[in-house]
C-alpha cells in the first residue's frame, strides 16, 4: 500500500495535478523559454533543483518555523536556491543564461515552488515531499519539452539546433514569437482536457 501511494504521489505531478496544464502555475516561464528545446531543458533543470531542495528544507524545518512567518521564511529559502542556480548557470553556461534573461531569477516568484512548499512540503514528511517535488518537476519539464519541441520544429525547422525539416517547409515564424507561445499553450491545455474528458467518459461507461 505504502509503495503504491508513493508511486501515485509521483505520477500525480505528471498528469492529474500537472502544475502547468492542470493547476496553471508557472505559466510565465513556460511561455517565455519554450521557444527552443535547449532553453526548456535548462529551465526545467533549474526549476527541479530549486523545487527539490526548497521542498527538502521546508519539510525539515516545518515544525520549527512559527506559522505567522512561514511564508516569509519559505521565500527566503527559495530565493537562496534560486540565487545558487542563477550563479551556476551564469558561470558555466553564460550563453544559455543570457538567452533566458531575467527568467532564471524569476523562478523565485514561480508559483509552482511556493505553492508546493505551502500546500505539500510544509505538511508532509521529508521523503514524501521530495517525491512530490520530483513528480511536479517532471510534469513541468515534460510540458516545457512538448512546447519547446513543437515551437522549435515549426518555427525553426529544427530540434535542439539540428535541422529536421527540409527547405520545403516554410517556417512558421510566429511560433517563435510571443503569440505562438500563448496559442500553443492554449491548444495543449485543450488537448489535455480532451483526453481527460475521454478517460472520464470511459470510466463512467464501465
Amino acid at each position: 500500500m505504502a509503495q503504491k501511494t508513493i508511486k501515485s504521489e509521483f505520477f500525480k505531478g505528471i498528469w492529474s495535478d500537472n502544475p502547468v496544464t492542470r493547476q496553471l502555475l508557472g505559466l510565465c516561464s513556460v511561455l517565455a523559454v519554450s521557444n527552443a528545446v535547449i532553453n526548456g531543458v535548462a529551465m526545467g533543470l533549474a526549476v527541479t533543483f530549486v523545487l527539490v531542495f526548497s521542498s527538502l528544507i521546508v519539510s525539515v524545518i516545518r515544525k520549527i518555523v512559527p506559522n505567522q512567518v512561514r511564508i516569509a521564511s519559505f521565500i527566503v529559502i527559495i530565493a537562496t536556491f534560486v540565487t545558487i542556480a542563477d550563479r551556476v548557470l551564469a558561470a558555466y553556461f553564460p550563453q544559455l543564461s543570457k538567452a533566458m534573461g531575467p527568467y532564471v531569477p524569476l523562478i523565485v516568484v514561480n508559483c509552482i515552488i511556493l505553492g508546493r512548499a505551502e500546500a505539500f512540503a510544509s505538511k508532509n514528511k521529508v521523503g514524501r515531499s521530495i517525491i512530490d517535488a520530483l513528480g511536479m518537476s517532471c510534469g513541468y519539464i515534460l510540458t516545457l519539452l512538448l512546447m519547446g519541441f513543437i515551437r522549435e520544429l515549426l518555427g525553426n525547422r529544427s530540434i535542439l539546433g539540428y535541422q529536421i525539416l527540409g527547405k520545403w517547409f516554410e517556417p512558421w515564424v510566429v511560433m517563435l514569437l510571443p503569440p505562438g507561445a500563448f496559442i500553443m499553450l492554449g491548444l495543449i491545455i485543450a488537448l489535455f482536457n480532451l483526453i481527460e474528458n475521454k478517460i472520464k467518459e470511459k470510466q463512467k461507461l464501465r
Binding site: 496559442i183 491545455i189 482536457n193
Partner: peptide, 12 residues
C-alpha cells in the same frame, strides 16, 4: 484557461 490563452495570443 485554454480559450483565454488563445485569446491572449491573438491580442498579443
Amino acid at each position: 484557461a485554454a480559450i483565454a490563452l488563445i485569446t491572449a495570443g491573438i491580442i498579443s
